[in-house]
Structures are given as structure tokens and as C-alpha cells.
Design a protein around this nucleic acid. Structure first.
Lengths: 364, 364
DNA sequence: GCTGGCACTCTCTTCTTTCGAGTGCTAATA
DNA sequence: TATTAGCACTCGAAAGAAGAGAGTGCCAGC
């Protein structure tokens, strides 16, 4: 059933006002807010109908109205004004993004911090799960007891480790191992590094000192580290400034859930890989019990190497979806441009903003 | 002025009880708690004197007594029973510590997480400020557009980066740069990497493609990263389970302060480098305004390479100093044993526990 | 110097009252 | 038929009142 134009306007006004004040919204307030030219009585009638339809609810008989998750969903899908960031804001974000990314690589968590600062909600980042492989081995012989392992990974980063041994090894062995590993350990994923493979390499290299095992362990460690999707949450404490989390128990519950990392995001299969899409999950649309009365806004970015990462924020259902979505979208686009390959849109550009999400779940 | 033996017992009992319950402690409760063989009236008299002396205070007339910071200080310095961890506890800690440290190097933050879990307070870790230098350079030529920089640092770790260039370089230049950097960039600190030095190296190598600058930048970045003391805070949310932080504003204030990292610890000059010392800072003894009514317990550990790191927890002044100190001390000792050089005490050992701190500040 | 007893104080809890925002309904109006 | 003004009603939040209880300070007796 379609909403009349006026109902839409009223619903939007309720959500906007509620987002702003966190107080149930009365008919009078809406009547006065301009944009509608009718009396509070008329609006009361409309509000009553919106309650019937499931878009709004009343905390108790004589209170104003509050949006239901279904109301928020309608708002997010159709009603909210897509926020355009001001030039200052976009420049600010770009500036800080550049700053963050200048530093050494794994600063994705820093970007999470940035997102949290920008939105004033806790932020989470998740790196994508990818089957990384080793592209190239180098072993640098330092002295009889020391050598350096350098792995070049499929995403064109290098990882290294200095190994100090209690026994001395000869340069030849290191040499041999280097080529053996280059021959048989490159291009294979973590799972393919089997004890059998390690053993046969050890024999082939005539390694009686366990060097092979050391190197293989480093390979496994590294592949594991880079292939495991890691979740990172920052700014949990920002929850506390939201009135809905004035109850310390409630806040504590959600915060410990967030600190636990992971398990926050829905199976992200629906994430269209190419777009600047922003996904909104409202209250009960979340799978995790702990998030049932919070909302999550997630953007995905191109992390290069054909993988995508996620960056999102968590807040009360009464969240400033419009601004948050705009900021996250912009941030994700910036990240994609910097991390991803090639054909990205030029900087300042930012007009499309696709918001997507589950379609309105049943209420209650 | 010295406290009588009975006063000490009473003070200890008050602190113990208050730590346990977070409620002001009455004379009756102490009388019944055994260990003292006198009536509540006697204890009332003693309590009144302890209030006069500044060790206790009353929230209001007709309430029980609560320790002042000075009272806690006395407790920590002289009264509290040094906690011995049970065998199960020490084993548990060792097990988890081993688990954490198995993984790749910079897991100090993980150890912070461990500390937080063990104590149920927010934990912070700080790596020491050290003037790190590069010990050795290796440049690995991959192909015309690609090479890998490998730095071996003075703390015997290796850092590497894969550099991909838009132009092609010849192997000779890479070779030349490698030896030049080994000659003039080793053993010097971050500050000594001057534009002049970079420039002269560039000329000496006859480098017209800016490779020198790229490498130098990586050196600077790396040295900066490893020499800058970084603070890391985890488990802020655990504050919320403490009754003194039921007020969201108070909690929020402290938590944002903690999230801001750093500035938490006092100038740690007093940290004796050799010992398992644990330091306790009670309420107003903290320098930071935000910590004036919280307490901090810090242990320092040997991070190898003649440097020390800090690991600590933050909580309300009503903190379980005894247990926390024991756990942190043990954790720090374990870290020292694993990270630091050589002559560490054997595992299970753990009997000395030196607690130190500022001597009782003036009250109020 | 210690103890039992007693009056007193002050907070916390609970109950009651008041206040007001906001509603639903009805009758009048365009 | 849709809108509006008016009015009685509802219900929570805030303010006030009363009672309970924990704990104190002090005094007199042991």
C-alpha cells in the first residue's frame, strides 16, 4: 500500500525531528515546522494512521510518536534527503585520509578511527577474506647464525623476518632453500602448505638443521595473518554520548559485543563489488541479538587485488542516516581511489549515492 | 605519626571491605569480620581518629567510612597482603602469553588485551621511546620496475617494503645504492637522516630517478614508527561494569580520555630498569586531570635492546590493588623473559613483588 | 580503656500529588 | 468530504512527604 504524499512528508518530519531531539514527536511540533500547511488536528489523524500502518509507534497513549524500524526503513529508502557534503567537509576528509594513508600499510584501523571521528559513532572496519599467496622468496644471508626471510605476497607487499639461530648454517644451504621455496611454495595458498610439502622440501634441500621448518612456519604465519579477515572497532565510547545508551548496562552490553570484534556484519554477499553503495541495517534487521535495537551503516571499498573491505559505523536506530551515509560513502570512495586499481572517479566528484538494504522487514 | 597496630588492622579491613562491596563500611561490619576482638563502639572511636588523620572519610554524617587516596596509599604501601597467584592462574597466564607471542611481532597490544581480560579493567600498553637505528640495508632487485627494501634494525627485526616504480631502473644503480646506504645510513638515528645526507648520497650514486629519496623516505618512516612510543588502550568498556562509573558522563569522560591514548603515565623516570617493580598511582597522584579520581597500576617489562615497555591498567581508586599488582607483575615478568635478553628468572618463580609509588601526598 | 545503650542524623525508598504535553473525539466549518 | 477548533482525558515525569534503616556520637558503667 502506497503512502500519500502528505503522509510521506509527515513521516519524514517525524523521523527528522526524532533524530534531532531523541524525544517523541508531537503533532504540534510538526504543524509548526513549516512545509505542511495544515493544523495539528489533521496531522494527528494522519499520525494515527501511520501508527496503524506500522511506521510509527507511541511509547504510551499520551506521548508523541517515534519511528518504528519499518518507519526508518521507509525513511532511508525513499524519504531522506541525500546529504551532500560541503566542499569544506570533503576537503577535510580527503586531507585526513591522505594523512592516514601516507604512513605504513596496515592503517585500515586508522581509517576506522577517522570514520568514528567524522560521524561520532563507533566505527568498525573489516578487511576482506582473500586467498593470498607468496609470489617470491628471498633469503638474505647475514652471518653464520642469521638470515632474513623476505616474502613478496600476491598483493605486492613484502613481509620480512630476521631469524637468529643458535647453530651456524652455511650459505649454500640458504641458497638452496631459497630456490626450492621459490619453486614449490609460490602461488599456493595457506591450505596448500602441507606437512608433506614441507618435509619433501626439507629432504630436497638436505636440511638437517630445521631451517625449512622455520621458513615454512613464517610462511604459514604470514599467509594466515594476511588472509584472515580482521575486524577492528574504534570509538566504542562514543556510544555513551547517545541518550539511548545512558543506561550503563545497555551500553556495556553493546560495547563488549563490539569490542569482541567480528560477527557484526551480515553475510555481505549482496555487496555489489563495483559501486559506492552504502548499506543500512536497521534494528531488528541485524542478525546479531545484541544489535537488534541498534543500526549499522556500512560502505564497502575496493581494497585492490580484487578484494573489498568494509567500513561502517554503529549507533542507535535513531541515527543520522543521511549524514552518516554520505560521509561513509565518501570515505569508502576515497579509500577505493587510493587503494584500488585504476579507473576511479576524480577526487572532488561525489554525486551518486546509492543506498540499499533489506526491504522492510515485518514489524515487531 | 605512626599508626597503632590496631588502627592499621582496621584501616586494612575498611579498604578490603570497600574494595569488595563499593559501599561505605560501617563499624559493625568490621567488628564482625573477625581478626579484631573488640566491639563496634571501640572501632567507632578508632574510625573517628582515622578520619581525623586523613586516612578515611565519610560521605555524610551517619554513613560508613570510605578510604581517602591517602588511605589507599597507606594500604598499598604497608597494609595489603601481597597476593600470590595460584598455580592455575600462573599457568593460565603463561599459556595465553605464549599464545599471543607466537604470532607476529607487534602483538604488544594483544598483551594489553590480555591484561585487560585478566584484571577486568581497561589496560594500556606503552612501548618505550628508543633511538632505533638501521643496522643493515638490503635491496633486492626484482625486475626493471620493482625492488624490495629490507631494513635490519638495531633491535634485530627486519622491515621491508616492495617498491614499484613507473620508470625502469638498472640493476647497477640498485647495487650502488645498496652499498652507499649501508655505508652512510647505518647506525644513525632518525634525526641524523638529513636532507643534506640524502642529497649527497643521491649524487654519489649518480641517481637521477629519485630512488634515493624513496629509500630514504622509507628509512625515515620506519625509524619514526619504531622509535615513537605508542600507547594502546583496550577494554575501555570494562569501566562500565564498575559502579563508580555508572554515571555515563563520568564514564564517557574517562573513556574518551583513554581512547585518546598517551598522556596517561607520569614521567616514568623513577622506573628502576631492573626490577619487577609495580607502580601504583592513586587518584590525585595522577597528573592528568581526568585521572584524578581513578587509579593506575603499571608494571614495566624488559623489551629487549635495553629498553623497557610499560603495561598497566586503569580503574576506580577502589581497585583491587593487590590482585591487579600481582597479575601485572607476573605478566611483565613473563614478557621480560620472552622479549628481553638472557638472564631471566625461570618460569614458575614468582615470589618477590615490589610495590612502589609516590609517597602519600597531602590530602585534598 | 573498653563496652552497651540510646538519641540523633541523614540518605534511600516508596507513595502520593501535581503538572503538562499530547492525544482522541466531536461538532462546526469550508 | 476534508479540515479545523475545542475539550475532556490519559499517562508519564517531576516534586513533595513519610517512613525505614544504617550508622554515628556520646555517655555512663564496667
Amino acid at each position: 500500500m502506497e503512502l500519500s504524499d502528505r503522509k510521506k512528508k509527515i513521516l519524514a518530519a517525524v523521523v527528522d525531528e526524532y533524530i534531532r531531539t531523541a524525544e517523541p514527536v508531537g503533532s504540534k511540533a510538526i504543524a509548526q515546522s513549516g512545509s505542511l500547511n495544515c493544523s495539528s488536528a489533521t496531522i494527528r489523524n494522519e499520525l494515527a494512521e501511520l501508527v496503524n500502518m506500522g511506521y510509527l509507534e507511541q511509547p504510551h497513549t499520551s506521548a508523541g510518536r517515534v519511528p518504528t524500524p519499518m518507519g526508518y526503513r521507509m525513511y532511508v529508502n525513499e524519504l531522506m534527503e541525500k546529504q551532500k557534503l560541503s566542499l569544506e567537509e570533503t576537503e577535510e576528509i580527503n586531507r585526513r585520509l591522505n594523512l592516514k594513508l601516507q604512513e605504513l600499510d596496515d592503517t585500515i584501523s586508522d581509517v576506522g578511527r577517522l570514520a568514528s571521528q567524522l560521524t561520532d559513532y563507533p566505527a568498525l572496519t573489516i578487511t576482506a577474506q582473500t586467498a593470498m599467496t607468496v609470489k617470491r622468496f628471498d633469503l638474505i644471508y647475514v652471518d653464520a647464525n642469521t638470515f632474513i626471510i623476505v616474502l613478496t605476497l600476491s598483493n605486492n607487499t613484502a613481509k620480512s623476518k630476521l631469524v637468529h639461530l643458535p647453530i651456524s648454517v652455511d650459505q649454500d644451504l640458504v641458497q638452496r632453500l631459497s630456490s626450492l621455496f621459490n619453486a614449490s611454495f609460490t602461488g599456493i595458498t595457506q591450505e596448500a602448505v602441507t606437512p608433506v610439502l614441507i618435509h619433501s622440501t626439507e629432504r630436497a634441500a638436505d636440511d638437517t638443521m630445521g631451517l625449512t621448518a622455520v621458513i615454512a612456519a613464517f610462511v604459514l604465519e604470514t599467509l594466515h595473518e594476511v588472509s584472515t579477515p580482521t575486524a577492528f572497532v574504534t570509538g566504542e565510547n562514543r556510544l555513551l554520548s547517545q541518550p539511548e545508551f545512558r543506561d550503563p548496562d545497555k551500553a556495556h552490553k553493546l560495547m563488549s559485543y563490539l569490542s569482541g570484534g567480528g560477527h557484526i556484519l551480515p553475510p555481505s554477499e549482496g555487496m555489489a563489488p563495483g559501486s559506492d553503495e552504502v548499506r543500512v541495517l536497521i534494528g531488528p534487521e541485524n542478525v546479531a541479538e545484541e544489535l537488534k535495537d541498534s543500526s549499522v551503516v556500512i560502505a564497502s571499498y575496493d581494497a585492490g587485488d580484487n578484494t573489498r573491505g568494509l567500513i561502517g559505523v554503529v549507533g542507535p536506530t535513531r541515527m543520522d542516516y543521511s549524514t552518516v551515509a554520505a560521509k561513509l560513502s565518501f570515505l569508502a570512495a576515497g579509500l577505493s581511489r587510493r587503494l584500488g586499481g585504476g579507473e576511479a572517479p576524480p577526487e572532488g566528484m561525489h554525486n551518486k549515492l546509492i543506498i540499499k538494504g533489506d526491504t522492510g522487514n515485518e514489524r515487531r
